[in-house]
Amino acid sequence: MSTGTGWVAARVRVVRIFGAEDVRRVVSMPMAIEGMRQAFLDLAAGNFVLPARQVFGDGAVLVMSTYHTPTRTAVVKKISIDLDRDPAIRALLIWTGGEQIVADGTVITTLRTGAVVGLATDLLAPADATRLTLIGTGGQAADQVRAVLAVRPIAETMIAGRNPDRARALAAALTDEFPQVKFISGTNIDRAVAAADIICCATSTSTPLFEADALPERVHVNAIGAFRPTMRELPRSLLASADLVLVDQREAALEESGEIIDAVQSGALSPDSLVELGTALTTHPQPTTGRTVFKSVGLGPQDWAIARLLSQSP
Protein backbone atom coordinates (compact mmCIF):
# COMPACT_ATOMS: atom_id res chain seq x y z
CA MET A 1 0.00 0.00 0.00
CA SER A 2 1.50 3.34 -1.01
CA THR A 3 1.68 6.32 1.33
CA GLY A 4 0.34 8.84 -1.18
CA THR A 5 -2.96 9.11 -2.95
CA GLY A 6 -3.47 6.03 -5.04
CA TRP A 7 -5.77 3.28 -6.16
CA VAL A 8 -5.69 -0.26 -4.75
CA ALA A 9 -7.47 -2.92 -6.76
CA ALA A 10 -9.89 -5.12 -4.85
CA ARG A 11 -12.35 -7.81 -5.87
CA VAL A 12 -15.41 -5.69 -5.19
CA ARG A 13 -14.37 -2.07 -5.57
CA VAL A 14 -11.44 0.33 -5.56
CA VAL A 15 -10.01 2.04 -2.48
CA ARG A 16 -8.56 5.55 -2.62
CA ILE A 17 -5.79 6.29 -0.13
CA PHE A 18 -5.06 9.77 1.26
CA GLY A 19 -1.92 10.36 3.28
CA ALA A 20 -1.49 13.40 5.51
CA GLU A 21 0.00 15.55 2.73
CA ASP A 22 -2.82 14.55 0.38
CA VAL A 23 -5.46 15.65 2.88
CA ARG A 24 -3.76 19.04 3.31
CA ARG A 25 -3.44 19.47 -0.45
CA VAL A 26 -7.09 18.69 -1.15
CA VAL A 27 -8.86 20.37 1.80
CA SER A 28 -8.02 23.96 2.72
CA MET A 29 -9.13 25.42 6.04
CA PRO A 30 -11.83 27.65 4.45
CA MET A 31 -13.18 24.58 2.63
CA ALA A 32 -13.18 22.62 5.87
CA ILE A 33 -15.07 25.35 7.72
CA GLU A 34 -17.79 25.53 5.06
CA GLY A 35 -18.00 21.73 5.00
CA MET A 36 -18.40 21.79 8.78
CA ARG A 37 -21.22 24.33 8.49
CA GLN A 38 -23.23 22.02 6.26
CA ALA A 39 -22.49 18.99 8.43
CA PHE A 40 -23.84 20.70 11.57
CA LEU A 41 -26.92 21.92 9.72
CA ASP A 42 -27.49 18.32 8.65
CA LEU A 43 -26.94 17.15 12.23
CA ALA A 44 -29.56 19.62 13.48
CA ALA A 45 -31.94 18.40 10.78
CA GLY A 46 -31.57 14.79 11.97
CA ASN A 47 -29.73 13.58 8.88
CA PHE A 48 -27.03 11.64 10.78
CA VAL A 49 -27.16 8.34 12.61
CA LEU A 50 -24.67 8.93 15.41
CA PRO A 51 -23.83 5.97 17.69
CA ALA A 52 -22.03 6.65 20.96
CA ARG A 53 -18.28 6.41 20.58
CA GLN A 54 -16.68 3.19 21.79
CA VAL A 55 -13.99 3.60 24.43
CA PHE A 56 -11.33 1.00 25.20
CA GLY A 57 -8.40 0.87 27.61
CA ASP A 58 -9.64 3.72 29.83
CA GLY A 59 -9.73 6.08 26.86
CA ALA A 60 -6.52 4.93 25.17
CA VAL A 61 -8.44 3.78 22.08
CA LEU A 62 -11.63 5.32 20.67
CA VAL A 63 -13.82 4.28 17.75
CA MET A 64 -16.17 6.89 16.27
CA SER A 65 -18.69 6.31 13.49
CA THR A 66 -21.54 8.09 11.75
CA TYR A 67 -23.94 7.46 8.87
CA HIS A 68 -25.37 10.23 6.67
CA THR A 69 -28.85 9.14 5.70
CA PRO A 70 -29.47 11.35 2.62
CA THR A 71 -26.27 10.25 0.86
CA ARG A 72 -25.98 6.75 2.36
CA THR A 73 -22.37 7.40 3.22
CA ALA A 74 -20.56 6.48 6.41
CA VAL A 75 -17.33 7.17 8.26
CA VAL A 76 -15.50 5.10 10.87
CA LYS A 77 -12.43 6.45 12.67
CA LYS A 78 -10.14 4.59 15.04
CA ILE A 79 -8.10 6.79 17.39
CA SER A 80 -5.26 5.93 19.74
CA ILE A 81 -4.38 8.47 22.45
CA ASP A 82 -1.18 8.72 24.44
CA LEU A 83 -0.73 12.09 26.15
CA ASP A 84 3.00 11.39 26.62
CA ARG A 85 3.46 11.03 22.86
CA ASP A 86 3.81 13.73 20.22
CA PRO A 87 1.41 13.83 18.51
CA ALA A 88 -0.80 12.51 21.30
CA ILE A 89 -3.53 11.49 18.84
CA ARG A 90 -3.02 9.03 15.99
CA ALA A 91 -5.93 7.93 13.88
CA LEU A 92 -7.10 6.14 10.75
CA LEU A 93 -10.33 6.95 8.91
CA ILE A 94 -12.43 4.85 6.55
CA TRP A 95 -15.17 6.31 4.31
CA THR A 96 -17.74 4.18 2.49
CA GLY A 97 -20.14 5.43 -0.11
CA GLY A 98 -19.98 5.41 -3.89
CA GLU A 99 -16.32 4.55 -3.36
CA GLN A 100 -14.14 3.60 -0.42
CA ILE A 101 -11.49 5.88 1.11
CA VAL A 102 -8.79 5.19 3.65
CA ALA A 103 -7.19 8.35 5.01
CA ASP A 104 -4.77 9.61 7.63
CA GLY A 105 -7.10 10.24 10.54
CA THR A 106 -4.55 12.19 12.54
CA VAL A 107 -4.46 15.15 10.17
CA ILE A 108 -8.22 14.89 9.62
CA THR A 109 -8.75 15.14 13.38
CA THR A 110 -6.66 18.31 13.73
CA LEU A 111 -8.17 19.83 10.57
CA ARG A 112 -11.80 19.15 11.51
CA THR A 113 -11.23 20.30 15.10
CA GLY A 114 -9.77 23.53 13.80
CA ALA A 115 -12.61 23.91 11.32
CA VAL A 116 -15.35 23.56 13.94
CA VAL A 117 -13.58 26.19 16.05
CA GLY A 118 -13.44 28.44 12.99
CA LEU A 119 -17.17 27.93 12.48
CA ALA A 120 -18.02 28.73 16.12
CA THR A 121 -15.66 31.71 16.13
CA ASP A 122 -17.28 33.09 12.98
CA LEU A 123 -20.65 32.74 14.68
CA LEU A 124 -19.81 34.27 18.07
CA ALA A 125 -16.56 36.26 18.11
CA PRO A 126 -16.54 40.06 17.65
CA ALA A 127 -16.38 40.87 13.95
CA ASP A 128 -13.51 43.30 14.57
CA ALA A 129 -11.42 40.86 16.65
CA THR A 130 -7.70 41.38 16.01
CA ARG A 131 -6.02 39.71 19.02
CA LEU A 132 -5.88 35.93 19.43
CA THR A 133 -4.42 33.95 22.32
CA LEU A 134 -3.62 30.27 21.88
CA ILE A 135 -2.96 28.17 24.98
CA GLY A 136 -1.22 24.93 24.08
CA THR A 137 1.53 23.90 21.69
CA GLY A 138 0.62 20.30 20.82
CA GLY A 139 -0.58 18.70 17.63
CA GLN A 140 -3.94 20.51 17.61
CA ALA A 141 -2.50 23.98 18.13
CA ALA A 142 -1.57 25.16 14.64
CA ASP A 143 -4.97 24.36 13.11
CA GLN A 144 -6.66 26.36 15.86
CA VAL A 145 -4.75 29.41 14.66
CA ARG A 146 -5.35 28.66 10.98
CA ALA A 147 -9.07 28.41 11.59
CA VAL A 148 -9.42 31.68 13.50
CA LEU A 149 -7.28 33.51 10.93
CA ALA A 150 -9.63 32.21 8.22
CA VAL A 151 -12.63 34.01 9.75
CA ARG A 152 -11.28 37.07 11.62
CA PRO A 153 -8.75 39.85 10.78
CA ILE A 154 -6.22 38.78 13.41
CA ALA A 155 -3.16 41.05 13.60
CA GLU A 156 -1.49 39.64 16.74
CA THR A 157 -1.37 36.14 18.21
CA MET A 158 0.04 35.25 21.61
CA ILE A 159 1.05 31.59 22.04
CA ALA A 160 1.26 30.46 25.65
CA GLY A 161 2.55 27.08 26.73
CA ARG A 162 4.34 25.40 29.62
CA ASN A 163 7.38 24.72 27.44
CA PRO A 164 8.85 28.02 26.20
CA ASP A 165 10.92 26.31 23.51
CA ARG A 166 7.85 24.68 21.98
CA ALA A 167 5.94 27.95 22.13
CA ARG A 168 8.77 29.79 20.36
CA ALA A 169 9.07 27.06 17.72
CA LEU A 170 5.34 27.15 16.98
CA ALA A 171 5.38 30.94 16.79
CA ALA A 172 8.28 30.81 14.33
CA ALA A 173 6.57 28.21 12.13
CA LEU A 174 3.32 30.17 12.03
CA THR A 175 5.19 33.40 11.28
CA ASP A 176 6.54 31.76 8.14
CA GLU A 177 3.00 30.69 7.19
CA PHE A 178 1.30 33.99 8.10
CA PRO A 179 3.90 36.78 7.76
CA GLN A 180 1.20 39.45 8.06
CA VAL A 181 0.45 38.39 11.65
CA LYS A 182 2.63 39.23 14.66
CA PHE A 183 3.28 36.10 16.74
CA ILE A 184 4.49 36.33 20.34
CA SER A 185 5.29 33.42 22.67
CA GLY A 186 5.38 33.12 26.43
CA THR A 187 4.44 31.05 29.47
CA ASN A 188 2.32 33.51 31.49
CA ILE A 189 -1.26 32.52 30.72
CA ASP A 190 -2.96 35.28 32.72
CA ARG A 191 -0.96 37.89 30.81
CA ALA A 192 -1.72 36.15 27.51
CA VAL A 193 -5.51 36.18 28.02
CA ALA A 194 -5.81 39.65 29.59
CA ALA A 195 -6.20 41.57 26.33
CA ALA A 196 -7.44 38.85 23.96
CA ASP A 197 -10.48 39.14 21.72
CA ILE A 198 -10.45 35.38 21.05
CA ILE A 199 -8.89 32.58 23.11
CA CYS A 200 -8.27 29.02 21.93
CA CYS A 201 -7.49 26.35 24.53
CA ALA A 202 -5.88 23.15 23.24
CA THR A 203 -4.33 21.38 26.23
CA SER A 204 -4.72 18.15 28.20
CA THR A 205 -4.90 19.82 31.60
CA SER A 206 -7.04 18.52 34.46
CA THR A 207 -7.19 21.92 36.18
CA PRO A 208 -8.57 25.16 34.68
CA LEU A 209 -6.05 27.23 32.76
CA PHE A 210 -7.21 30.60 34.15
CA GLU A 211 -9.96 32.18 36.20
CA ALA A 212 -12.77 34.24 34.72
CA ASP A 213 -11.43 37.36 36.44
CA ALA A 214 -8.33 37.18 34.23
CA LEU A 215 -10.39 37.66 31.04
CA PRO A 216 -11.59 40.83 29.32
CA GLU A 217 -15.28 41.59 29.72
CA ARG A 218 -15.78 40.94 26.00
CA VAL A 219 -14.08 37.81 24.69
CA HIS A 220 -14.88 34.58 22.86
CA VAL A 221 -13.28 31.40 24.26
CA ASN A 222 -12.89 28.09 22.39
CA ALA A 223 -11.93 24.93 24.29
CA ILE A 224 -11.14 21.66 22.53
CA GLY A 225 -8.48 19.96 24.66
CA ALA A 226 -10.46 18.36 27.50
CA PHE A 227 -12.20 15.27 26.12
CA ARG A 228 -12.54 13.19 29.30
CA PRO A 229 -14.68 13.80 32.41
CA THR A 230 -11.48 14.17 34.48
CA MET A 231 -10.07 16.97 32.30
CA ARG A 232 -10.88 20.69 32.61
CA GLU A 233 -9.54 23.66 30.66
CA LEU A 234 -12.19 26.22 31.61
CA PRO A 235 -13.13 27.51 35.07
CA ARG A 236 -16.58 26.98 36.50
CA SER A 237 -16.88 30.75 36.97
CA LEU A 238 -16.59 31.40 33.22
CA LEU A 239 -19.27 28.87 32.31
CA ALA A 240 -21.56 30.27 34.99
CA SER A 241 -21.19 33.88 33.86
CA ALA A 242 -20.90 33.55 30.05
CA ASP A 243 -23.64 35.12 27.94
CA LEU A 244 -23.75 31.95 25.82
CA VAL A 245 -22.20 28.48 26.12
CA LEU A 246 -22.14 26.71 22.75
CA VAL A 247 -21.42 22.97 22.39
CA ASP A 248 -21.10 20.68 19.39
CA GLN A 249 -23.76 18.39 20.90
CA ARG A 250 -25.41 18.65 24.31
CA GLU A 251 -25.49 14.91 25.03
CA ALA A 252 -21.83 14.43 24.15
CA ALA A 253 -20.73 17.44 26.20
CA LEU A 254 -22.63 16.22 29.27
CA GLU A 255 -20.95 12.81 28.99
CA GLU A 256 -17.39 13.74 28.02
CA SER A 257 -16.53 17.37 28.82
CA GLY A 258 -14.96 17.66 32.27
CA GLU A 259 -15.66 21.37 32.59
CA ILE A 260 -19.30 21.05 31.52
CA ILE A 261 -19.86 18.09 33.84
CA ASP A 262 -18.29 19.96 36.76
CA ALA A 263 -20.30 23.12 36.17
CA VAL A 264 -23.59 21.20 35.85
CA GLN A 265 -22.97 19.02 38.91
CA SER A 266 -22.09 22.08 40.99
CA GLY A 267 -25.26 23.87 39.93
CA ALA A 268 -23.31 26.66 38.24
CA LEU A 269 -24.66 25.73 34.80
CA SER A 270 -28.00 24.36 33.66
CA PRO A 271 -27.91 21.67 30.96
CA ASP A 272 -30.85 23.41 29.29
CA SER A 273 -28.74 26.54 28.81
CA LEU A 274 -26.29 24.74 26.53
CA VAL A 275 -26.83 25.72 22.88
CA GLU A 276 -25.94 23.22 20.17
CA LEU A 277 -23.90 24.49 17.24
CA GLY A 278 -26.35 23.20 14.63
CA THR A 279 -29.21 25.01 16.35
CA ALA A 280 -27.20 28.22 16.61
CA LEU A 281 -26.50 28.12 12.88
CA THR A 282 -30.23 28.26 12.18
CA THR A 283 -31.19 30.76 14.91
CA HIS A 284 -28.18 33.11 14.55
CA PRO A 285 -27.50 34.27 18.14
CA GLN A 286 -27.56 38.02 18.68
CA PRO A 287 -24.16 39.73 19.01
CA THR A 288 -23.06 40.10 22.62
CA THR A 289 -20.83 42.56 24.42
CA GLY A 290 -19.93 39.96 27.02
CA ARG A 291 -18.23 36.57 27.08
CA THR A 292 -19.08 33.57 24.91
CA VAL A 293 -17.75 30.01 25.07
CA PHE A 294 -17.56 27.16 22.58
CA LYS A 295 -16.81 23.72 24.00
CA SER A 296 -16.15 20.85 21.59
CA VAL A 297 -15.57 17.18 22.35
CA GLY A 298 -15.64 16.10 18.70
CA LEU A 299 -18.32 14.26 16.72
CA GLY A 300 -18.41 11.81 13.85
CA PRO A 301 -20.11 14.27 11.45
CA GLN A 302 -16.98 16.44 11.65
CA ASP A 303 -14.88 13.57 10.27
CA TRP A 304 -17.61 12.89 7.70
CA ALA A 305 -17.41 16.50 6.50
CA ILE A 306 -13.69 16.25 5.72
CA ALA A 307 -14.00 12.77 4.20
CA ARG A 308 -16.80 14.01 1.94
CA LEU A 309 -14.52 16.73 0.60
CA LEU A 310 -11.86 14.11 -0.08
CA SER A 311 -14.41 11.94 -1.92
CA GLN A 312 -15.29 14.88 -4.17
CA SER A 313 -11.68 15.50 -5.22
CA PRO A 314 -10.52 14.42 -8.69
Rank of each mutant, 00 (worst) to 15 (best):
I89H: 15
Q265G: 13
S206V: 14
L50S: 03
E251I: 01
M231Q: 15
T282V: 08
A88N: 07
Q180M: 10
P287A: 10
D213T: 15
F40A: 07
A115K: 07
K78T: 14
A150Y: 09
E255Y: 04
F227G: 05
E156G: 04
H284K: 12
V116N: 04
R218S: 09
L92Q: 14
R53L: 12
V148S: 10
S270N: 13
D165E: 15
L309E: 07
T121P: 01
L310F: 07
D104E: 05
A253V: 02
F227Q: 13
P271E: 08
D272M: 01
R13M: 10
R228H: 13
T66I: 06
G225F: 05
V15F: 12
A88P: 00
R37T: 01
E251T: 10
E256N: 13
G19L: 05
D176I: 08
M31W: 01
T96R: 03
L234Y: 13
A214M: 04
L92R: 12
G258M: 10
S296I: 02
D197S: 05
T69D: 09
T110N: 11
I17A: 06
E276C: 03
Y67P: 01
R85K: 14
V14P: 02
A212P: 03
Y67K: 04
R166Y: 02
D86Q: 11
T133F: 00
I159E: 04
G35H: 10
F227R: 13
A173F: 00
V75R: 00
T106V: 02
V193M: 03
S80D: 13
R90I: 05
T130Q: 14
S237R: 06
